[in-house]
Design a protein around this nucleic acid. Structure first.
Length: 564
DNA sequence: CACCCCCGCGCG
DNA sequence: AAAGCGCGCGGGGGTG
């Protein structure tokens, strides 16, 4: 059973039961926003429907805030993003509708984009709220596009995983990562000195800057300015091309140590200092916005607070509450395992049945050198063209011909301007107007740029199939964890605690191939089992009985820095 | 002043 | 060692 949920213009909400093809069943009804949580909660309990709506990010947070957790949904907007480009969708009528609805051309906008393609989206009035009828019609068209596609089972799984992920993201945002501001303040003052007055640099940074100005004999030096810094370094015979730390490291000069230290502290101060704490920690929780499907490959993105870049140095401040633990689980070496499973390369799959895939590959063909095996494999998935990685490619190709052929084929297709797809059917957006322009090049210089562009596109498509399929595995994993821990009840001794609508075990963080659960200590063993079962299930959902494992590294800790 | 790009660095 | 993929963010430094 599906139930459609759509906001009206007048503060009401429209509901309608839909059958398996999205056709209305019975009469639609409507109610006030205030009455919605009760109604939705009752329907969830009695019918366990799949909720159909324009967007989870818009509809679900208010329900969560009112104490309502939902089991399943179909996010029409996320489904559109997938289906409009998917090569598995054969009937182009939905793709055309989807492109129209996104209000932007089907290719990325650049300075060469014809003005008429942009005008509509730039100058149209604020987008009107989509009516229940429009959302229902699009939902039905999406079901039809999937049904008539080349691989309905895969696409259905992808859309279900993406929608489940959208529920996870809203729940994570409402829960937040438990964050101890006191611990954070302590680590800041340990590293930087006491909190400076507004507009003043921290004491420790100021000391280092002075030391640097003395060593480089540059009394006016602003170490935050790469241009300024580069000039000062050159004047002192330090012939770096850039001011990146790895390049500075190789120079032996008394200014290098304080400069590297300054850069480290400056990063901590600007990215995760007192201002960050003030802006992002409320009531002991870090609550960033997660953007499901925000990356072309299907990975999540985030907005605000640098949620997907929490540096190791501040992870000590992410701490379980008293009586709770953090369960941090990450999937080891996901991308090479995905490559092994997708390509059906028997040799690589054998390595991917072991705990340490790189070590197996090292033994199989790199004289036991794990680092060589790792560099070679990463190079194959990223498209390395120079250095050790490129040198090791022939050996890797000899060992695992099918796996390497898969990524090489994806690269060739990208270079020709074609699209490629993940295992479940998310495809690259078409290359856009700069590719068309490159086809009409005249001069040698233009030809050289066009070739460079094609190689770059090839590296992108090569990586896309692997990174994107890994993201699909991870969303299936997330969905499986979510549904398992939702059933957990409060352990004894917590009778008085008021738990969030998602229950006592809180799925609070996700980072590409890693999850964090914050749960009462008594529930942790069951959470560990849930996380491991869900990983096995994700492997089966994508690849059936394919002989590849996705082992996890699981840590039960009091603070995030203790994991790994 | 707002807006944009580049740089550098954090994460996977 | 720092290449080869995908991101977000803050600061400098330029533009209109």
């Amino acid at each position: 059973m599906h139930i459609l949920l759509a906001s009206g213009d007048d503060g009401t909400v429209h509901l309608a039961r839909l059958d398996a093809s999205g056709v209305p069943l019975g009469e639609p009804w409507q109610l006030s926003r205030a009455a919605l949580p009760k109604e939705v909660s009752d329907l969830e309990a009695t019918e366990q429907p799949r909720w159909v709506w324009d967007s989870s990010s818009e509809m679900y947070p208010p329900l969560l805030a009112a104490g309502v957790r939902l089991g399943r949904c179909h996010d029409v907007t996320l489904a559109r993003t997938i289906l409009r480009f998917s090569q598995l969708v054969q009937d182009s009528s939905y793709a055309a509708l989807a492109t129209e609805l996104t209000g932007s051309p089907a290719y990325p906008v650049t300075e060469d984009t014809p003005l008429e393609d942009l005008q509509e989206s730039l100058f149209e009035a604020p987008r009107h709220r989509r009516t229940a009828g429009e959302i229902r019609a699009e939902f039905a068209a999406q079901l039809d596009a999937v049904q008539s596609s080349r691989a309905p089972v895969r696409l259905r799984l992808l859309l279900a995983a993406e929608s489940a992920a959208s529920l996870v993201a809203a729940e994570m945002q409402s829960l937040g990562v438990p964050w101890d501001p006191q611990v954070h303040r302590e680590l800041l003052s340990d590293a930087l000195g006491p909190e400076p007055a507004p507009g003043r640099p921290p004491a420790r940074m100021e000391e280092l800057a002075q030391q640097l100005r003395a060593e480089l004999r540059a009394p006016q030096l602003n170490p935050d300015s790469p241009q300024d810094l580069l000039k000062a370094l050159h004047r002192n015979g330090i012939e770096v091309r850039t001011t990146r730390q790895w390049e500075l490291q190789s120079f032996n000069h008394p200014a290098i140590a304080p400069l590297l230290e300054y850069k480290k502290l400056a990063r901590l101060y600007t990215a995760n200092g007192w201002a960050w704490l003030e802006a992002w920690i409320r009531n002991g929780r870090f609550r960033p916005d997660y953007v499901v499907g925000g990356v072309v490959t299907g990975r999540w993105a985030s907005r605000g607070g640098g949620a997907l870049q929490i540096p190791r140095t501040v992870r000590r401040a992410a701490r379980a509450l008293p009586g709770y633990k953090l369960l941090v689980a990450d999937a080891s070496q996901v991308e090479p395992r995905i490559l092994a499973a997708m390509s059906g390369d028997a040799g690589m799959a054998a390595a991917a049945r072991e705990q340490d895939l790189y070590a197996e590959i090292a033994d199989a063909g790199f004289g036991g050198s794990r680092s060589s095996a790792k560099v070679a494999l990463l190079g194959a998935m990223y498209g390395a063209t120079t250095g050790e990685s490129a040198r090791l490619m022939p050996q890797l190709r000899k060992l695992y011909p099918r796996a390497i052929a898969l990524v090489e084929d994806a690269a060739r297709q990208g270079e020709r301007g074609e699209s490629v797809s993940t295992w479940l059917g998310r495809s690259t957006p078409p290359p856009g107007p700069e590719w068309d322009a490159a086809q009409r090049t005249q001069s040698q210089e233009e030809q050289r740029r066009a070739d460079a562009w094609a190689r770059s596109r090839g590296r992108f498509t090569r990586n896309f199939i692997v990174q994107g399929t890994a993201a699909e595995w991870a969303e299936c994993w997330l969905a499986g964890i979510r549904s398992r821990i939702a059933a957990f009840e409060a352990p004894e001794g917590h009778e008085e605690t008021v738990f969030p609508p998602t229950g006592p075990a809180e799925l609070v963080f996700f980072l590409h191939d890693e999850i964090m659960i914050h749960a009462p200590a008594e529930l942790i063993p069951r959470c560990v089992a849930a996380v491991e079962e869900a990983a096995r299930e994700a492997g089966r959902l994508l690849f059936g009985k394919a002989p590849v494992d996705f082992p996890l590294t699981v840590a039960v800790v009091d603070s995030y820095d203790q994991a790994k």
